[in-house]
Design a binder for these strands. Structure first.
Length: 755
DNA sequence: GCAAGGTC
């Protein structure tokens, strides 16, 4: 019997469908832990395909390091004593694997065709062979659990097939004879099409253990760095428990991008400039023109030109129209889809969730991919024929389906992991919310990649007013091409000028100058940030949206476009201050670039995992020593940052600071805490001495509260902005004064509704 | 209570 192990259930099912005639599905376990296996006949033998759920092993520290203490950090760096063990959450999967592996004579590793897929394949072999550790070898065996005891987490649902008793052997019991595992076969496919899967099985190979080691080194380094620096920062700043300060190879450089941009904005000095604009008419035609020079750097130069442009009429001196081709966009990979969705108001984290549901419902292909080139094996026509049944794009899809050949666009990234994201089905019921938006986007992008370029006529008219040159630009869609379905930019591209010819005369309706200032660089939106991360190699297709979400959850950033909190700024600037003498790349993206380079060398057999991890430990040791010499500074910066994040503005009564505090029940409220350095007032009997004038206000209990820096026009108390978690929803601006007259209308409305 | 990477 052949045992085929894939990385996910959908791949196991698809492979069974392609290779087998009749497929029998068996279910193992219950509820969320349910695992399916697919049984079929293949080449005169039985076969079973089963999907793991991603990684089934993980890197862990021994329990001796469980306690958070600064005195362990040196040991954690120098002798991390990491072990590679079975992931506790994978118990259900492994029980199912054990049950279907029984009697297998051949093992086929069919995990994803990328670096992590290779490691997952290696994990499966370790477990099947009985080499995998159940727990860290230096940890004591866990005590037997009482039968029927309620245990939280995934492990609880493990069926009894995996013996719960610890017989002292730290290894998982072998599922197959070593010989059968050793002569395993590795198949590699980049799309789950008949053509590719059959070709993969016809050209078997073996697991690339060097490539798997490369991924394994990343796990080790990420854990050591993450654990040591997270503990150091948290302990340095006295932020324990739920408020810990996380640090990581990917999250910290990502935070740095946001913080650096904010610091640039703060350092920005605006430069004034002027523009001259005019409105011209001819009958019903209106033309808005601007001085041909664009920006005037000096007021004098602008005024001179303005004086020379005094006239009642304007004359067209030239008119040019040039067609240019606008190429259709490349197929969607994860980043491009996230970015496009973000532009349409769906955050990357939400878009990813919606895409996941669409994929599980058979509407789009696998949503985690780097690829932007359709593999030739893809059934483009099949998708088009299906889309011909989806009303919003039916005519375009039907027309394309009849076409003989396709020359789809190609992006720069061509990878082996999965095909680009494209529609594979049509919804039976109408979709709603994020899913509707993401599906619509995927469908339109797909059709766009198969449609011809758009032809846009760019227009420019030169006009003289008085003695000065002016101009206006316009554009006209000459041939819509892909814009037929991908109209995102079409509106902007169809702003034609009226028909004008040299010598035409127009009336000057208005001539005015505008005084402006150069603008600081703008904050990152979630879409552009995810693109920047991809460009720098930070995170992966599957993790970038989560990493950004994590920065929100840790209160390092807020709002959208993304703004760092003072805590986020303090964390990054504290690092930098400590690293001044001897910079170590601990919070920069170059650290990842270097790791990538070393992983490539491991996969080529030039370096070993332990060498790369050892080098990384040396680097961390240097960084830690520098940080350790700056504990007090780091503490002060972070405390200051947090205090600033909680300070809403000035108290109208006494000029003190209004700050967010938490009550005994955990509810937050705003209170005047007095001026900086103010002495606490003598306390009444049985009460604590307090600073400030005693003024308090209730606050909304949900969302992130940020001061706007302004005061309310009606009541004079500080104004705040409340934004949902993760930058979701529309920000709500209000003043802290609950009795402010500006709230009358709102209150009247809600009262009526509640009544 | 730590990371990032898979997947649900």
């Amino acid at each position: 019997m052949r045992l085929i192990v894939t990385e996910k259930d959908s791949a196991a099912r698809k492979i069974a469908d392609i290779l087998g005639g009749k497929v029998t599905v068996k279910e193992h376990g219950r509820g969320r832990q349910k695992v399916r296996s697919y049984h079929f006949g293949y080449k005169d033998d039985d076969a079973v395909a089963i999907g793991l759920r991603g990684h089934v092993m993980e890197t862990v520290f021994p329990n001796t390091y469980r306690r958070w203490s600064l005195k362990y950090l040196g040991d954690m760096i120098e002798t991390p004593d990491l072990a590679w063990v079975v992931d506790g959450g994978a118990a259900g999967t492994l029980a199912a694997l054990r049950s279907v592996a029984k009697g297998a004579t051949e093992v086929v590793i069919a995990t994803d065709y990328d670096r992590e897929g290779e490691l997952i394949g290696h994990e499966a072999l370790e477990i099947l062979r009985g080499d995998a550790l159940k727990r860290h070898p230096h940890d004591k065996p866990e005590k037997k659990k009482k039968a029927g005891a309620a245990v939280r987490g995934k492990a609880a649902a493990a069926p009894p097939a995996e013996p719960p008793a610890d017989d002292g052997d730290p290894r998982v019991k072998a599922m197959l004879p070593a010989a059968a595992v050793d002569r395993h076969i590795r198949v590699r496919y980049s799309a789950l099409t008949r053509e590719e899967v059959e070709a993969a099985f016809a050209k078997p190979s073996t697991v690339d253990f060097n490539l798997a080691e490369a991924a394994h080194s990343r796990q080790d380094i990420d854990l050591i760095w993450g654990a040591v620096l997270t503990r150091f920062m948290s302990l340095a700043a006295y932020r324990y428990g739920a408020d810990y300060l996380s640090v990581g190879r990917v999250q910290s450089p990502t935070l740095r991008l946001v913080v650096d941009r904010e610091l640039e904005r703060r350092a920005f000095v605006p430069v004034p400039y002027w523009e001259i604009k005019a409105t011209l008419t001819r009958g019903d035609d209106i033309v808005e023109v601007a001085h041909a020079k664009g920006r005037f750097d000096s007021l004098e130069a602008m005024e001179t030109a303005f004086a020379r442009a005094q006239a009642d009429t304007a004359e067209v001196t030239a008119y040019k129209a040039e067609p240019r081709k606008v190429a259709p966009p490349a197929p969607f990979n994860t980043t491009a889809l996230m970015s496009a969705a973000s532009g349409g108001g769906v955050s990357p984290a939400r878009a990813m969730r919606a895409a996941e549901s669409l994929y599980l419902n058979g509407l789009i292909s696998y949503p985690r991919t780097d690829n932007t080139v359709y593999p030739p094996s893809l059934d483009l026509r099949g998708s088009l024929e299906a889309l011909a049944g989806w009303r919003p794009v039916a005519t375009t899809a039907a027309r394309l389906a009849k076409q003989g050949r396709y020359t789809p666009t190609r992006g720069k990234k061509r990878t082996t992991d999965h095909p680009p994201i494209y529609p594979v089905g049509v919804p039976k019921k109408e979709l709603s919310g994020d899913q509707a938006r993401v599906y619509d986007l995927v469908v339109r992008r797909f059709l766009a990649t198969l449609l011809p370029a758009a032809v846009i006529e760019g227009q420019r008219v030169d006009i003289r007013i008085g003695h000065e040159p002016f101009l206006a630009r316009g554009s006209r869609v000459a041939s819509p091409g892909f814009l037929e379905v991908y109209e995102k930019f079409a509106a902007k591209r169809d702003r034609p000028l009226p028909a004008l010819r040299p010598g035409d005369v127009l009336q000057v309706r208005d001539l005015h100058s505008e005084s402006k200032e150069t603008q600081p660089p703008s904050r990152y939106g979630q879409g552009p940030l995810i693109e920047k991360m991809e460009e720098l190699g930070l995170g992966t297709k599957a993790t970038r949206a989560d990493i950004i979400q994590h920065l929100y959850d840790r209160n390092y950033v807020r709002d959208n476009p993304i703004e760092p909190t003072e805590l986020g700024v303090a964390l990054i600037t504290a690092f930098d201050a400590a690293m001044k003498q001897a910079p170590v790349d601990i919070s920069s993206w170059q650290m990842t670039a270097k790791l990538d380079d070393q992983m490539d060398r491991i996969s080529e057999g030039e370096l070993r995992r332990d060498e790369v991890v050892a080098e990384s430990q040396d680097m961390l040791e240097q960084a830690w020593k520098l940080l350790d010499g700056h504990v007090a500074d780091i503490r002060e910066r972070i405390k200051g940052g947090v205090r600033e994040d909680l300070t809403l503005g000035e108290c109208k009564n006494c000029g003190g600071q209004v700050r967010v505090l938490r009550g005994k029940t955990g509810k937050r409220f705003a209170a005047c805490v007095g001026k900086e350095g103010e002495e606490p007032k003598p306390a009444a009997e049985g009460e604590r001495a307090r600073r400030g004038c005693g003024q308090t206000f209730p606050l909304p209990q949900r969302g992130t509260i940020t001061p706007t820096g302004k005061t309310c026009g009606e009541c004079g108390w500080p104004e705040i902005k409340v934004v949902g978690a993760g930058g979701r929803g529309r920000p709500w601006v209000l003043c802290v004064d609950i009795d402010c007259p500006s709230k009358e209308k709102y209150r009247a409305r809600t009262k009526k509704r509640d009544a």
